[in-house]
Nucleic acid binder design. Structure first.
Length: 154
DNA sequence: GCCAACGTTGGC
DNA sequence: GCCAACGTTGGC
């Protein structure tokens, strides 16, 4: 079992949106970055745990936990000409973009802000706290996962 | 294959 | 809203 962190703009899709979705499950569509695509297509497994991160908001940070419930499969929004994430270079016979399904597990007792995460030397290797990093799906080590969870009750 | 131009991400 | 950082595109 592995750990991940996924970024979402809460104005588009928030942890509350996931919690109120049917079966508290939704697909993670719209990722158009190869590194993130590779992770979703090749690496994420059912049962993996995911930190749900809110970006581009007043207090960016980790707000909850989700779980992978379906392995990588083609992102159909890339085939839809009306979808904002439509990509003419992806076709159903040879899909370029992939997504996974995740299910809501719980919200954290409080938001663990990016500012707070940046202050932790234990987390300095996380891509998240690196300047200019734009990766929207990234691995989290078991140590980082436990450390971040330990911050929740502080 | 290089690299300038452009578009996007995302913190602030 | 600004802009730094980065990925992608396309001309050559």
């Amino acid at each position: 079992m592995q750990y991940w962190l996924m970024k979402s703009e809460p104005d588009t899709f928030s942890i509350d949106d996931l919690a109120s979705a049917p079966n508290q499950t939704d697909h993670w569509d719209g990722v158009r970055n190869y590194q993130a695509r590779n992770i979703m297509r090749d690496d994420m497994q059912v049962g993996d745990q995911v930190f749900f991160y809110h970006s581009s908001t007043k207090v960016p940070g980790i707000v909850g936990i989700a779980e992978v419930v379906r392995r990588g499969y083609p992102d159909h929004t890339a085939f839809d000409t009306k979808d904002p994430h439509y990509d003419p270079k992806s076709d159903p016979d040879n899909p370029r973009w992939y997504m996974v399904d995740i299910r809501f597990v719980r919200k954290l007792a409080r938001t663990i802000s990016l500012a707070e995460l940046k202050e932790c030397p234990d987390l300095s290797d996380m891509p998240l706290v690196r300047k200019g990093n734009r990766l929207s799906v990234m691995p989290v080590t078991p140590e980082q996962w436990q450390f971040i969870l330990s911050l929740e009750s502080t």
